[in-house]
């Protein structure tokens, strides 16, 4: 799993380096708060943090029933994160000044970076749902948890760079 995570981390590294280059070389870079809502993004971040806790508790659960309960909570929080991202996309696309994929560099990088991460969350949600349906042992849940924590860790620089860091 660590080998897979290493290759995946390289993918995220490439995306983040490209984002950094494009941002610093751009003539104009909008302040994130001019377009993005910090509150919902913060709520999504806390949901992902909480999902890491529930996933850890799933790995520590003593019974299959308890494990399924924590996995279900993780699934709900992951789905909540994805729903938040989808609502944000719809809000941006349907606003008075729509922010489409090709509107400008800020928009393009925003959709590519958050979309790349969103696909990872979606894969995690599908994986957790699969674990709920099938009979998997504690070791399989541990492996899934490793991936889930990685996706959580990958969101941290994305949230920081896109939503928090001030524009030039």
């Amino acid at each position: 799993m660590w080998t897979f995570l290493a290759t995946d981390a390289m993918g995220f590294a490439g995306v983040l380096i490209a984002y950094g280059f494009l941002r610093v070389r751009a003539d104009v870079w909008l302040d994130a708060r001019a377009r993005l809502e910090l509150g919902p993004a913060a709520a999504m971040t806390f949901a992902l943090l909480l999902s890491s806790l529930t996933m850890t508790l799933a790995t520590r659960a003593a019974s299959v029933r308890a494990r399924r309960g924590w996995l279900l909570a993780t699934l709900a929080l992951g789905a909540g994160f994805l729903a938040g991202a989808a609502i944000e996309y719809v809000h941006l696309l349907a606003s008075a000044a729509p922010m489409g994929l090709s509107s400008d560099l800020f928009a393009s990088t925003f959709y590519v970076v958050t979309g790349f991460h969103g696909l990872h969350v979606l894969a995690g949600v599908v994986g957790v749902a699969f674990m709920l349906r099938a009979k998997h042992g504690a070791q399989a849940v541990e492996t899934m948890a490793l991936y889930w924590h990685f996706v959580d860790a990958a969101w941290m620089p994305i949230f920081s760079f896109i939503y928090l860091w001030p524009a030039r």
């Binding site: 660590w2 080998t3 995570l5 290493a6 981390a9 390289m10 995220f12 590294a13 490439g14 995306v15 983040l16 380096i17 984002y19 950094g20 280059f21 941002r23 610093v24 990685f150 860790a153 990958a154 620089p157 760079f161 860091w165 030039r168």
Partner: peptide, 24 residues
């Protein structure tokens, strides 16, 4: 086995941080 993962994360996030600080 974790070193490669951490190196990749550090490289990506670190490069972005350095680039933006350099711009500032």
């Amino acid at each position: 086995s974790a070193r490669l993962t951490m190196a990749a994360i550090a490289l990506g996030a670190g490069a972005a941080v350095v680039l933006m600080l350099e711009t500032v």
